[in-house]
Computed example of a mutant assay.
Amino acid sequence: MAKKKSLATLLKESSGKTSHADLYFVNKSNNKVILDIEIGDTGQSGISKIVLDGVTIQPEVIGSIRGQELGSNKSLDGKFLEVTTVITDVSKKTNLTSFDFNLTGGTEPFRFVMQRSVQKEGGSVGYKISIFFTT
Rank of each mutant, 00 (worst) to 15 (best):
I50M: 00
I50L: 04
I50F: 00
V51A: 00
L52D: 09
G54D: 03
V55Q: 13
T56H: 02
T56N: 01
I57K: 01
I57M: 05
P59I: 01
P59H: 07
E60P: 01
I62F: 02
S64M: 08
I65A: 03
G67D: 14
E69T: 14
L70N: 11
N73Q: 12
N73S: 14
K74F: 11
S75F: 07
S75Q: 06
S75N: 10
L76G: 02
D77P: 03
G78P: 13
K79H: 10
K79A: 13
K79L: 15
K79V: 14
E82W: 06
T84W: 03
T85F: 09
V86S: 05
I87W: 06
T88R: 09
T88Q: 14
V90W: 09
K93N: 09
N95D: 11
N95T: 14
T97C: 14
F99D: 06
D100W: 08
F101Q: 02
N102D: 06
T107R: 02
T107L: 07
E108N: 08
P109R: 08
P109V: 09
F110V: 01
R111T: 13
V113E: 07
Q115G: 08
R116C: 13
V118S: 11
V118E: 10
E121M: 13
G122S: 12
G123P: 15
S124V: 11
